[in-house]
């Protein structure tokens, strides 16, 4: 088994899409509810398959912070205009193969958006670095 992080971006990915080019603010309340219910269902199904590790949604508003030298307060920058790529949240899974991780990501990407149509949004799939194998020689 190997762990993967499925990263959901607000924007970004190989093509710049914005929730199927219809920002969530344009959706009806039902469309928003359906989308959220779908995400919940994906998590439940992964749990039922014994593959779910964690899921977390993130606030779109955040800041960049860095060290600025001894005795000085942290430097902050942001929040940024809505043109930037933002990570909306993630799902962490523990699966048998990279193929299965891609299958789960594609399923997540089929979440309904405006008009109940699948978003086809890009999900970033990143493998974890795991512990080194014991037998190496």
């Amino acid at each position: 088994m190997a762990k993967y992080l499925l990263l959901k971006h607000y924007r970004g990915g190989p093509e710049r899409t914005d929730y199927g080019n219809a920002p969530m603010s344009d959706w009806t309340p039902e469309e928003v509810s359906d989308h959220i219910a779908f995400m919940q269902r994906v998590a439940d199904e992964l749990r039922e398959r014994g593959e779910f590790v964690d899921a977390q949604a993130l606030s779109p508003e955040g800041a960049f912070v860095r060290y600025d030298g001894p005795g000085r307060p942290p430097v902050t920058d942001g929040p940024f205009a809505e043109t930037k790529d933002l990570i909306a949240g993630w799902m962490m899974i523990d699966v048998e193969s990279v193929e299965r991780a891609h299958e789960a990501a594609a399923y997540l990407s089929s979440a309904p958006g405006k008009g109940g149509v699948p978003l086809h949004e890009w999900i970033e799939v990143r493998p974890f670095l795991e512990h080194p194998p014991t037998v190496t020689d």
Binding site: G50, E51, D94
Partner: peptide, 15 residues
């Protein structure tokens, strides 16, 4: 030992 939630492992085992 597998760093997954107990509920997930319970499902994996019962499946």
């Amino acid at each position: 030992a597998h760093l997954v939630p107990e509920a997930t492992m319970a499902q994996r085992i019962s499946r």
